[in-house]
Design a protein around this nucleic acid. Sequence first.
DNA 1: GTGCGTATACTCGCATACGAGTATTCGTGA
DNA 2: TCACGAATACTCGTATGCGAGTATACGCAC
Lengths: 221, 221
Amino acid sequence: MAKRRPVGNLLALAVLTVVVQRPMHPYEMASVLRARGKDQDMPIKWGSLYTVVRNLEKHGLLEAVESGRQGARPERTVYGVTEAGRREADDWTRELLSTPLREPSSFEAGLSVMGGLGPDEVAPLLRQRLELLEGQIETERQALEAERGQLPRLFLVESEYALAMREAQARWVRSLLAELDGGTFPDLDAWRAYHRTGDLPPGLAHLAERGGTEEGPTEED
Amino acid sequence: MAKRRPVGNLLALAVLTVVVQRPMHPYEMASVLRARGKDQDMPIKWGSLYTVVRNLEKHGLLEAVESGRQGARPERTVYGVTEAGRREADDWTRELLSTPLREPSSFEAGLSVMGGLGPDEVAPLLRQRLELLEGQIETERQALEAERGQLPRLFLVESEYALAMREAQARWVRSLLAELDGGTFPDLDAWRAYHRTGDLPPGLAHLAERGGTEEGPTEED
DNA sequence: GTGCGTATACTCGCATACGAGTATTCGTGA
DNA sequence: TCACGAATACTCGTATGCGAGTATACGCAC
């Protein structure tokens, strides 16, 4: 399951969905995608556009429909989607919708290494995050409200989801902060000590040890 | 702000935080990280380990502490962290905690292109996602409960966050499904028509048009 | 009409990512 | 004690990824 995509970059999916509507040359794809704000919904790097289009063509998902120059502009190639491309786009979309993936965010990574900083440094950092988060939420909520009149719900769903996730994150950060500030977070002192001395509290030594397959007579345990 | 990291891969941060505790050779780093489940918290590809370690050394964040062979094993290099490496790790952690990034998940990407499928196909896909999601949530909740006795809260925080986000996602999917199933999602018919014919409802033509800078006399608007 | 800033429409090269492969060692059974 | 499967400990090649750069065209001021 989850067969490997011939072109894995999500920009490729964006390209396919836009070319399905009408053949285009690459730069136009970029303009349309930008105009629709797709770069908000996917991690799109425009530097990859031409590579991705070339790869799509190589795998028979796109085909050159017309190529020539208009005026003195550099030569441009207009690409159309193939039947295989259409299938790939649909199949990919189905997979994205139906299969939840574990995709750790950078915040999760940050949380998993926050032990390296002391709790008294972590709290202000989280407070800053919360403030920025609240600002973003407000901005997005307004943008969404403004678009609600212009566009059908269908085209706003992904923004609604993003907003809901932001709000959930803010709530979670707020509750962690309350525990840190209120001192109800357990082991605050052990954490402080660990941060100062680098020593884990006794009984947790196995966290730092083992894992390496220590061979030879260097150590016994 | 957010100065470019000399080694951008998050695996590098994981390596730094583990080497801070005690010098190691690369394979041991991998074992320790795996034992701690860090590959759950970050998108870690083990194939990148040696490249990342080499880059860290090149940028002076890690240094070879000892290099030699034990028994007939291939030569191994033990790396320790430098002062710069320690600073980099702390600074990076601070940034991850304090600065919320827009990192669209693949589900968001899926939602943003779901118009290409019809609503009657989307609903079952979402139902499948919801079921898988609920299973994962249950599994993780139990794993978390089991670890709660063994480990201090500090080391469980990232799992708690991941779980909270999963639950928020499940709630959101449930509510969207309710709208689809109940027929209260607006424009269901327009969506169906669009899916069958490929035509956008009138008044939305500008969605498909413009964006490309159509030059020349091909079109006027 | 000519100079200049901005938008258009790409190209290129380098670094990195990472899957697949390889060689060594260890443990176990016969 | 020898064979063999599994785990250990890496290496390598290739396919991207993508930032920075470039060149042309167009609009507008003067």
